[in-house]
Computed example of a mutant assay.
Amino acid sequence: MTSSARGLAGRIFRVDEFGVVAALVALVLVIGAFHPAFLDVDQLVDVVAQAAFVGILACGMTYLLAMRELDLSVGSTYALSIVGAATLVQHGLDPWLGAAAGVVLGAFLGAVNGFIGEAVRIPSIITTLGTLSLYRGLALAVSDGRNVADLPRTHAFFTIVGGDLFGVPVPVWVLLVVALVLTVVLRGTRFGATVRAIGSNPDAARFSGISLPRTRVQVLTLSGALAGLSGMLTLAFFASGDPTIGNGYELQAIAAAIIGGTPLRGGSGTVWGSVLGAVILGTVASGLVYFGVPINWNLFATGVVILLAVAMDSLLRRRRAAASFL
């Protein structure tokens, strides 16, 4: 392998991410040992496909956590984008254009989060705590609290985007492309370096001439656009717009990023780790079904996984600190 190829590989994958891969493989094997049907290729692909929607949200959350920020409104942005696009399509707009409008709407809602926060000088976690309810309320109001149905299911948008490519659901391919692009941006571009610099030391970043407000708005806009993109994949899959969909997705996206190895202290992030974290959450949820555990225990299981991931990250950091001291 040439030095340039190794450099590119280093920008895409990190050693830390292999630990998350090992945890995922171990989890799958444990479930498969008790329920061999879980190891069926179609079942595993289905787990990844179901995790793709949260995985795309987690990619955006990685950037925010790397800046010591959070977006609690991504689940509501996701739902409002779906409802908005579905309503446009229901009224005769071409589904491809409706989907593009849904992504733009998501980006706009993310930008609104950023501009509100900068206007009133409050952290994004407070701003998005408010817009979480605001955007969800708009989704319910626009749809009158009902599912937006009667969409042209036979249109190419629904059959292509909601179908498979080479035997793999299209959302999985989109997730892989998003993760690859955002990984290269985060680790190999000036914008990515800016995001990490702000998370490492906001004051030093400000003194070096970095515009914290502009970068914060840009990252929140990115998060909103990814929520819109994930929403359009969901719209294509279900061919309807449910205003209640995505409840709790913001917490799952945060959990996926943390499980994947993105620290809450900021300064670094792993997009691939966040994708793997989303797949781990999906694997846990599917495993509970195989073991006959009621779906109401999903949140409990998610909380346990988050605590274990945070505890493991803390332990590894202490060991590294002790090793460097010695």
Rank of each mutant, 00 (worst) to 15 (best):
V41F: 11
Q43E: 10
L44V: 10
L44K: 05
D46R: 06
V47W: 06
V47Q: 08
V47C: 13
V48I: 13
V48C: 05
V48S: 03
Q50W: 03
Q50T: 09
F53M: 03
V54W: 05
V54M: 06
A58C: 04
G60W: 01
G60T: 01
M61Y: 00
M61F: 01
Y63E: 04
L64P: 02
L65S: 07
M67W: 06
E69L: 14
E69K: 12
E69A: 14
L70F: 12
D71M: 12
L72P: 11
L72Q: 11
S73L: 12
G75T: 10
G75F: 07
G75S: 10
S76W: 07
T77N: 08
Y78G: 07
A79C: 11
L80Q: 11
S81A: 15
S81D: 09
I82D: 00
I82S: 00
V83E: 00
A86L: 13
T87Q: 09
T87R: 04
T87L: 15
T87M: 14
T87Y: 10
L88V: 08
V89E: 00
G92H: 08
G92W: 06
G92E: 06
D94R: 02
P95D: 11
L97F: 14
G98L: 11
A99S: 15
V103W: 01
V104E: 00
L105V: 14
F108Q: 00
L109G: 01
A111D: 02
N113S: 08
N113M: 09
F115A: 08
I116D: 03
G117E: 01
G117K: 03
E118D: 13
A119S: 13
A119W: 11
A119D: 04
A119K: 12
V120I: 14
R121N: 07
R121M: 04
I122A: 12
P123M: 09
P123A: 08
S124E: 06
S124P: 06
S124T: 11
I125F: 15
